[in-house]
């Protein structure tokens, strides 16, 4: 638990470190997107840029959630409560996107735009 003064003093350094990682992550994402030399995959935006960008974003978001929001040492109940939201949002985003995989949308989906 980070509730004792000792533990809090210790974790302040972690917070600094995580903050720095977040800054670096942001810079990497921007470099990949804007500087041609760092471009991944095809020339210009493509699925690899998308995957890389979202992966870095997910890592950053996880750092915020686990370190800043203390999910790394939180009670089990919180995982259930917040997890329920995450679970349902996957259902919403996943299934609506899946509904696009139908003949009437194929033209757009596979056209590469």
């Amino acid at each position: 638990m980070a509730d004792t003064p000792e533990a809090i003093r210790k974790s302040v350094r972690t917070y600094m470190f995580v903050g720095a990682v977040l800054f670096v992550g942001t810079i990497v994402t921007v470099l990949v997107a804007t500087v041609p030399a760092f471009d991944v995959g095809e020339h210009g935006f493509d699925k690899w840029d998308c995957i890389l960008g979202l992966t870095i974003a997910t890592i950053k978001a996880s750092l915020v959630a686990f370190i800043f929001m203390h999910l790394n040492h939180e009670k089990k109940a919180v995982y259930w409560l917040f997890g329920s939201g995450l679970c349902m949002v996957c259902s919403l985003a996943g299934l609506t996107a899946l509904a696009m995989y139908s003949p009437i949308f194929d033209k757009y989906f596979f056209s590469g735009h």
Binding site: M88, S91, L92, L95, L98, A99, Y101, S102, P103, I104
Partner: peptide, 20 residues
């Protein structure tokens, strides 16, 4: 939370999604 599109069978979502 995972049944909603049964209100939308008529929209032409496609056979796979409808079956799900």
């Amino acid at each position: 939370f995972v049944v909603w599109a049964h209100h939308m069978y008529m929209t032409g979502m496609g056979a796979a999604v409808s079956t799900f």
